[in-house]
């Protein structure tokens, strides 16, 4: 008869679950939140369009040569792009900071999870010691 389900001892099963399966689940959850932050702040999109004019506001030059008009168009377009770049840069920076915070939080959670069994054992030991001897 075929063996169709995994059979392990309870401790080995727990060890595998805690340090592999559950850890992977936490990692995937953390990855989802990290990707959401990147998506929410549209970092890659904003980087691609960083020099685009703000809200597509753009003047174009028509007619004969008029130094005043040319200067006006150039100044406006430069201003529109600069405004766009400034706002986008601010959002990108906010996004990067949030992403870093998510990374730190994720690492913290993963570490906590890895240390949880040890923490439980030590916690039990110390709290019992504290109760018995004080």
């Amino acid at each position: 008869m075929w063996q169709i389900s995994e059979k392990r001892g309870i401790f080995s099963l727990w060890f595998l679950w805690h340090y592999l399966i559950a850890l992977r689940e936490i990692y995937l959850g953390w990855k989802d939140i990290f990707l959401f932050v990147l998506n929410y702040f549209s970092i890659s999109f904003l980087l691609k369009t960083i020099f685009s004019p703000w809200r597509r506001y753009r003047f174009s030059f028509r007619g004969g040569f008029d130094i005043g008009k040319v200067a006006e168009v150039v100044v406006f377009n430069v201003f529109s792009r600069a405004l766009g770049m400034a706002v986008r840069t601010a959002v990108i920076l906010m996004g990067i900071i949030t992403a870093i915070l998510v990374i730190i939080f994720g690492v913290f959670i993963i570490l906590m999870w890895v240390l949880l069994p040890v923490a439980v054992i030590f916690g039990l030991f110390f709290s019992l010691q504290c109760l018995i001897f004080n």
Binding site: D32, F36, Y57
Partner: peptide, 19 residues
């Protein structure tokens, strides 16, 4: 907390490249 559910919140800045 899934990515698919979280992204329903939308995203900032996509419309800035549009008029």
């Amino acid at each position: 907390w899934s990515y698919r559910n979280l992204i329903k919140k939308g995203r900032i800045g996509t419309e800035w490249a549009s008029g």
